[in-house]
Deep mutational scan, measured.
Amino acid sequence: MATADDFKLIRDIHSTGGRRQVFGSREQKPFEDLVDLGWLKRSSVDSRATHYQITERGTSAAL
Rank of each mutant, 00 (worst) to 15 (best):
A2M: 05
M1N: 12
W39D: 00
A2I: 06
G38P: 00
S25W: 11
R57N: 09
S47C: 09
G58S: 00
R48Y: 13
D33G: 10
R57C: 13
R20D: 02
L34V: 02
Q53H: 09
A4C: 14
A49N: 08
W39C: 02
F23D: 08
L37A: 03
Q53W: 09
R11K: 11
S47V: 10
E56C: 09
S44L: 13
T55V: 02
A61W: 04
A49V: 13
G24K: 09
A62K: 01
A4M: 11
D33A: 15
G58A: 01
T50E: 04
D33N: 14
D12H: 09
Q28N: 08
D36H: 13
Y52C: 01
G18W: 02
Q21S: 15
R42L: 09
D12V: 08
Q21E: 14
L37Q: 03
K8S: 08
V45A: 09
V35D: 00
A61Q: 04
A61G: 02
F7L: 09
H14S: 06
K8Y: 08
R20S: 06
S60E: 15
S44G: 10
D33C: 12
G17V: 03
E32C: 06
V45F: 10
D33S: 13
W39R: 00
T55C: 02
G18T: 02
L37P: 00
E27I: 06
D46I: 06
F23H: 10
A61C: 06
K29Q: 11
R48Q: 14
H14L: 13
R19A: 11
Y52F: 04
R19P: 03
S15T: 10
G58E: 01
K41V: 15
S25I: 12
T3V: 05
T16P: 00
L37K: 06
T16Y: 06
R26A: 15
E27T: 08
E27G: 10
D33P: 05
G38E: 04
E56P: 13
F7W: 11
I10G: 00
H51N: 12
D5N: 11
R26T: 15
R57M: 14
R19F: 14
V35Y: 03
R48F: 14
D46Q: 08
S15R: 14
L40C: 03
L34S: 01
T59A: 08
P30C: 07
L9N: 04
E32T: 07
S47T: 11
T3P: 03
A62I: 04
T50S: 07
R26D: 15
D6Y: 07
T50P: 05
I13C: 02
A4I: 11
E32Q: 10
A61K: 04
L34Q: 01
A49E: 10
G24D: 11
R42N: 04
R48S: 13
T16G: 10
R20W: 07
S60I: 15
E32V: 06
S15L: 13
R57W: 11
G38H: 04
T16Q: 11
T3E: 04
A2P: 15
D5Q: 11
A62N: 02
H14A: 10
E32R: 07
Y52S: 01
D36Y: 13
D36A: 15
S25F: 09
Q28H: 07
A61N: 04
L37C: 03
G18F: 02
Y52M: 01
G17S: 06
K29C: 06
I54N: 01
V35S: 02
P30F: 06
A61I: 08
T59D: 04
D5L: 10
M1L: 12
W39A: 00
S15E: 12
F23W: 09
R57Y: 09
S60C: 14
V22G: 03
A61H: 04
S15W: 09
S43Y: 13
E32D: 11
P30E: 06
A2Q: 04
S43H: 12
T50F: 09
S43N: 10
D36P: 03
I10A: 02
A4N: 09
H51M: 15
L63F: 06
G17C: 08
E27H: 11
A4Q: 11
F31V: 02
G17Y: 04
S44H: 15
R19G: 08
S60T: 13
T50A: 11
G17I: 03
K29F: 04
A2L: 04
D5F: 09
Y52H: 00
R20C: 13
L63S: 06
T59K: 11
A2T: 05
D36W: 11
G38Q: 05
W39G: 01
L34R: 00
K29D: 05
R48A: 13
Q53K: 07
Y52V: 01
